[in-house]
Design a protein around this nucleic acid. Structure first.
Lengths: 372, 372
DNA sequence: GGTCACTGTGGTAACGATGCCACATTCGAT
DNA sequence: ATCGAATGTGGCATCGTTACCACAGTGACC
């Protein structure tokens, strides 16, 4: 799959030749005819420098192509312009958008971002935290897996913003989605359409995100006076395939289900596939809703009714909190901000089918024979 | 949309209290009863240390929770364990997967990744390069927008790997997708089905990626003896909306088109929407193929026939090249590796409709009235 | 026994920037 | 005229680590 084809080596030699020593602030000072101290002040803006000298220094910097060495600067000043971002899976558009929102705002504030994936594993997360300490990030944004990494960072005095979910017992800043609200609203949407037997497909309820969605689902049912049926809360692993199988098993077991709520985008993917493989029509046979809005949800037919978490804003808010915390404009108290999600109604939800007609596997369609 | 809800400040005070000075290698040396020099050698593995002393140092490091300061280390050793990754848009799954592939491999090789988005703008790209120089990355991986950033990095001696596309005239390492091959194969697939009037929707042909896809398309037509019709190469901007409008205009102008080739995932998105809004059936009325395989392409019906670029592998290969280059195991010559794409046949392609029945906007369906 | 290679350790000087202090000059107020 | 404050500049030490050199001990070999 990988082939080597060509290699022209002309430009590299030229590059090597032009590899002069990188100019330091000493060189700059010499070029501008002043001392390194003054050059430093002229560039950083701390302390007195006359306008005339500052101009001369800037001109000289341009002239000799001086770029301050931020490593030396960090060592001396014991700060860095780096912020660590520790997330579970950059391939998941949720995390990608989060990272993008963070990066945009931090970049415009003059910080750069070090991204570490942890694949949802606590050990990898701790390893990432260690990296952050080694490079002395000035803050970290974490979607926590366990409490270890966050604790480690905080105990070394690194400001932490927890994103999307919260580890209990730590008082770092945090930006969360109001999962209860979002889940309640979308469940109520189903209830309002007349659904009474609504299944929740969910992978975990240990984190605040999953717990909140479960709570919102329950609250909506309670508000409608629908008794909670524990068998309708379907546990699954955080993978489309697992979700697909879980949905399949659920519908075999409970053909009376008329609506399905997938608690995140990956589970929604699996649920969608499961329904199609069974030959079920959405929303005629079964309504489907999701949590987290992704492009594919408006591409498929029917479009999926879902909860938009405003992931970009989640990211930007995390970044803002970091900037504020570093600047010290945030007080010592931990701040928790909530992003209010909004529901997006598309075509995957409708009034339930006649209760007398439970869903069944369509005879004409067998799993595996469907081309997707 | 953002609300403040609570803030418990208990843990922070405790954190502040435990904020002891971070242990340095001096502390470590004292704890292990040896000199800093020896401690340094024990940790880094350069130079002689007896097994007994090394064990003592490692134990002491564990004991006092010593983490080497990589800033100081970088300053002194004039190297860093950071690699810069400069890409266009992390929100686009293509770049997200690329970044993920890069990050995985580099992390396992002990490097961390600094990600900078440039939004496809040359100025932002140069700014990113400046950041990389300031933090003295030991290499950079770039999906180049202009030649300026790559030039800047190379002239400062930073090894650069160009990913996905190549800026002319520079001889850095590069990992490219064989776009000609992929485009030719998928176009031939259409030709083999009997298509003769195949439109190519493409946003740019200045970069090697776009140029390659155009060349592959042309080569396939030439091989089949189909004359090239320039009006069938439809230029558009790099956005789904623009692509949608371009497809709409094309089909108004050229109702004889029987197949459409969208040159990347964003254009495919727009094309798919355009066809649906016009009420056209795929593949019965029109066949559609894409370049770059994304999850939604197997979620929609019909599934989209496309070219899988093996983006993860593209990323991993870039990272491997970087590791080799830093280790010096790559010779001075620039290496260009090609990833061979493979085509994925789904349901969006079929034999063309009868030539006597050109496509027309379905009367019953008006753009805008369709719920998606 | 002397030379040499090898092993193992410690001392010292950087890497490049900046914080702090000392010092010089100017100017307004007493 | 004298003092103090404000303005401006340079010198020096230092951030935490490692490269380099010096040097001590051990054993092998002629």
């Amino acid at each position: 799959m990988v082939g080597k084809r060509e290699g022209g080596g002309e430009g590299r030699a030229e590059t090597r030749a032009s590899l002069r020593r990188r100019p330091t602030i000493q060189d700059l000072a010499r070029a501008a005819g002043i001392s390194p101290s003054t050059a430093s002040r002229a560039l950083s803006g701390n302390g007195y420098v006359s306008a005339e000298v500052r101009a001369r220094v800037l001109a000289a910097a341009e002239e000799i192509r001086y770029v301050p060495d931020s490593i030396a600067r960090s060592l001396r000043s014991r700060t860095s312009r780096a912020v660590g971002v520790l997330i579970s899976d950059i391939r998941n558009p949720f995390y990608a958008n989060l990272a993008a929102g963070i990066e945009e705002r931090l970049r415009s504030a003059g910080y750069h971002v070090i991204v570490v994936n942890n694949d949802g594993e606590a050990d990898a997360e701790v390893e990432g935290a260690r990296t952050f300490l080694a490079v002395r990030v000035s803050a970290a944004i974490v979607t926590p897996v366990s409490d270890r990494a966050v604790r480690m960072l905080m105990s070394d005095g690194v400001p932490v913003v927890q994103a999307d979910r919260l580890v209990d017992g730590l008082s770092s800043d945090a930006v969360l989605v109001d999962n209860v609200q979002g889940a309640q609203e979308i469940t109520s949407h189903l209830v309002d359409l007349g659904h009474r037997t609504i299944a929740l497909l969910i992978d975990e309820t240990d984190w605040t995100s999953g717990a909140g969605r479960l709570a919102g689902y329950r609250a909506a049912l309670r508000a409608a006076g629908i008794p909670m049926d524990p068998a309708l809360v379907v546990p699954t692993r955080f993978q489309p395939d697992a979700a697909r199988e879980a949905v399949d098993a659920l519908l075999d077991r409970r053909p009376d289900v008329t609506a399905l709520f997938a608690a995140n985008n990956l589970l929604a993917e699996g649920a969608f596939q499961a329904l199609r493989l069974r030959g079920l029509r959405v929303p005629e046979d079964l309504s489907l809703v999701a949590f987290d809005d992704l492009p594919w949800m408006s591409m498929v037919s029917p479009g999926i009714t879902t909860v938009d978490q405003h992931t970009d804003e989640l990211g930007r808010t995390c970044a803002q909190l970091v900037v504020d915390r570093i600047a010290g404009s945030e007080s010592g108290e931990a701040t928790v901000r909530y992003i209010e999600p909004s529901i997006v109604i598309r075509s995957s939800t409708a009034t339930p089918r006649e209760p007398s007609v439970p869903v069944a596997r369509a005879a004409s369609t067998q799993a595996g024979s469907v081309t997707i």
